[in-house]
Amino acid sequence: MSELDGKVAIVTGAASGIGRGIAERFVAEGARVVIADVQTELGEALAADLGEAAVFVATDVGDQAQVARAVDTAVETFGALDVMVNNAGRSSPLKKSLFDEDFAEFDSVMRVNLLGVMAGTRDAGRHMADHGGGAIINMASIGGILAGGGVASYRASKAAIIQFSKSAAIELAHYEIRVNCIAPGNIPTPILRSAASEEDRARLEKFEAKIRQTMRDDRPLKREGTADDVAEAALYFATDRSRYVTGTVLPVDGGTVAGKVLVRKPKPAD
């Protein structure tokens, strides 16, 4: 028997990147999945590829009414909602320094990254509370754990997701609803590309290569992380394997948040 047989899930931001990997893994494990995304063409194509186990609903998670509609779609189409993955997110523009930051996109970043998670947790939780509980998985980032320069609004939004999720875990535990966070790091996805300014995009290949190399240098495990690695963590939180786990934050980052890589000097020759 597959681990999610009979379960119904919503994955926001599922048309590409990490969300797509989670949606595909959930369907492979027997779940029926609502793909909620603003990318209509990609979302509809993925739903078609996944067959009768998936349905697409156009969803801007920054609009609370659209989040509620995604929850209603899951219940109306598949008859239940057992797992909510609040994955949709966006980056904030990269700036040379904090002094160059005008926070022009602060409201948009917070609306998508934080309000979308809060509304998704609330609306899924309302249904789950009346139907025996469930699992809510919120996508944070190691950027919400580790301090660093750049993308200030993004880092702030992801840190807020972690604190909100822990608070929601405490409140919703009474209803047998588990709320956990995943904090990916160093996973190649389109979100880094969206953080680049127009000037950066003109030399994006060089820009991305530099960022990725910095990530590799700071990562104890040297293999590249993938969306499948994050999907494996999401599967754990979605199943009964984590039935006694709530309010946690799981970095999926090759060990980055554990600390800096120790550079060992070669031993002198005899």
Rank of each mutant, 00 (worst) to 15 (best):
A159F: 10
R193P: 07
R20W: 00
R264H: 13
V61D: 13
K267H: 13
D72K: 07
E52L: 05
A23G: 05
M128H: 06
A58K: 11
L46K: 04
R155W: 11
T256E: 01
D228C: 04
A227Y: 03
P188A: 02
M110T: 04
R90V: 15
L172C: 04
A156V: 11
D5E: 10
S194D: 08
V263E: 09
G148D: 00
A147P: 14
A88L: 14
S108R: 13
T59W: 13
G13I: 03
S91V: 13
G148C: 03
M215P: 07
A124M: 08
P93I: 15
A23N: 04
A15T: 06
A104T: 14
A168N: 01
L94Q: 12
G43M: 04
D228V: 02
Y154S: 08
A173C: 08
Y154L: 07
R243T: 05
G185R: 01
D270C: 15
A169D: 08
K210Q: 11
N113F: 11
F237I: 07
A104E: 14
L146S: 03
S157N: 07
F99K: 15
D100R: 12
D49T: 05
E105C: 08
L192T: 11
A9V: 07
E101I: 09
M215D: 05
D200T: 12
I161Q: 08
D102K: 10
G30A: 03
R223A: 06
I187Y: 15
I10Q: 02
L98A: 11
E176M: 05
A80D: 06
G120N: 10
E208M: 15
E44K: 10
V263C: 09
R264L: 09
V83R: 10
A169T: 03
F56I: 12
R69M: 07
S242V: 00
L204M: 14
A68S: 13
T12L: 07
D60L: 12
H127Q: 08
M1P: 05
S92D: 12
E205W: 13
A183P: 06
T226G: 06
G254P: 01
I142H: 01
E199L: 08
D253W: 01
S97P: 02
A65Q: 14
A135L: 05
G125Y: 08
S153D: 10
I35F: 05
E41I: 06
P184I: 04
T77R: 13
N138K: 08
S167K: 13
V57F: 15
G6R: 11
Q213V: 00
Y244A: 09
A65F: 15
R32T: 03
K158Y: 01
R32H: 02
K166C: 01
V245H: 00
I161G: 05
V83I: 05
I177V: 03
V27C: 02
E232D: 11
G132R: 09
V61P: 12
E208I: 14
S92G: 14
A88T: 13
D100F: 15
G150F: 04
I18F: 01
P188G: 06
